[in-house]
């Protein structure tokens, strides 16, 4: 069972504010999906290795050569707010 309180906890972890009404609706939705997902418990997976990725890739490196990059000016051109070439955010430390 997933409660409204659970949803509010997950919503904070996800950094998405939800009010009481939204949390209630989400609890119902998530409950339905999680019930469906329960079917995976029927399978015996004791000796199965997990797949995180389908390609047999390990430690992909490239040569350590200096290349042109975006640069501060281009990077902050898209900023919501910027000052002196930096991204400006609300107060972090109270």
């Amino acid at each position: 069972m997933i409660s409204k309180k659970d949803v509010q906890y997950i919503s904070h972890l996800s950094r998405i504010y939800t009010d009481d009404h939204e949390a209630e609706a989400l609890a119902k939705n998530l409950e339905g999906i999680l019930t469906y997902i329960e079917k995976l418990k029927k399978l015996d997976i004791k000796n199965v290795k997990p797949t995180s990725h389908v390609l047999p890739l390990k430690n992909v490196f490239r040569d350590d050569i200096l290349k042109e990059s975006l640069g501060q000016k281009n990077a902050t051109k898209i900023a919501v707010k910027s000052e002196k070439g930096s991204f400006k955010v609300p107060q972090v430390i109270e």
């Binding site: 659970d6 997950i10 919503s11 996800s14 998405i16 504010y17 989400l26 998530l30 999906i33």
Partner: peptide, 21 residues
């Protein structure tokens, strides 16, 4: 929290929360 509340639609919120869970 407010940016993500207003910025994401219902399905995006649902999936982010399911994944976080």
């Amino acid at each position: 929290e407010e940016t993500r509340r207003q910025g994401f639609g219902q399905e995006a919120k649902r999936r982010i929360m399911l994944g976080t869970y």
